[in-house]
Design a protein around this nucleic acid. Sequence first.
DNA 1: GGGCACTGTGTGCACACGCACGCACTCTCG
DNA 2: CGAGAGTGCGTGCGTGTGCACACAGTGCCC
Lengths: 152, 152
Amino acid sequence: MNGMDRADLSLGPLSEQDHAFYGLVWAGTTLAARVDRELARVHGLPLSWFEVMLWLNYQQEPVAASDLGAKTMLSRSQVSRVVDALAGRGLVSRTPSASDARSVRIELTGQGRALFAEADATRRAALAPVFTDRLDAADIAALEAVWRKLRA
Amino acid sequence: MNGMDRADLSLGPLSEQDHAFYGLVWAGTTLAARVDRELARVHGLPLSWFEVMLWLNYQQEPVAASDLGAKTMLSRSQVSRVVDALAGRGLVSRTPSASDARSVRIELTGQGRALFAEADATRRAALAPVFTDRLDAADIAALEAVWRKLRA
DNA sequence: GGGCACTGTGTGCACACGCACGCACTCTCG
DNA sequence: CGAGAGTGCGTGCGTGTGCACACAGTGCCC
């Protein structure tokens, strides 16, 4: 992650589609960088750790590492290392699967859930002035529609 | 850059705003990764190199390295290294500024412009099936409106 | 049951990036 | 004119990441 908000994104003679694309990449990286910086500053928590905890938090059952790699935006090797670090701090528990001896069942500990709740609050706080507060319901709905089309 | 399209982004009980945010980051990184992979495959060109060439291509006059750092999404050190690599391949020229001996005037060479034209074509080709073709004019306009609000 | 392809996971290595620093140069002010 | 603050640029260092590989375990098919 970057750590600085830069990029004015005032490019010149680009088509509408191209400009929309660059704006998309710019907005995504800028907002992610801001969240990453705030998470690191307040909780000493890298964004990749937060991403794993986010996914684990909304799962009822423990999940396998390969699931985290498929669902999250992280590679398998990154998942392996992040989970290892989280386990070292007691934020997640890694128990071998009963049905498959290769697989590992990963879940948040109580401490992990507590820290995630705090971290998610700071994420919302960091996002509010630059994202949430600036968009109305119609904007949000429009973005939703676009994501649906892109995901298909 | 990543190199793989992953992430299904089917998160659970999130608010509309949060879902819009995650979709934004997901779409940005996924599309950027796709462009990066295609650029590397076809032209052996990293996305950071392409980004510098893109900005240089739409400038009439040579620009300083600090301008590239401010306008592009790259850090100053990254600009320094990328420009060095591009100069090594004869794609950009670095001539010391006449008015300020510290500054460098960077511009694309003819070879650089030619390669950028090809690379930009592959970028459009890579983006078409997953982005451009899936969105209509109303979607593009909606995205434009959002980027305007976020940039302000 | 035994061999074989395949899957889930972890790791060594090379590479790219940001940060902090250093150097050369410019500007300002007394 | 000279000293000190500020600016533009490049670079060593530490860190994080992806890729390719290794290893253990599983399922299939004969």
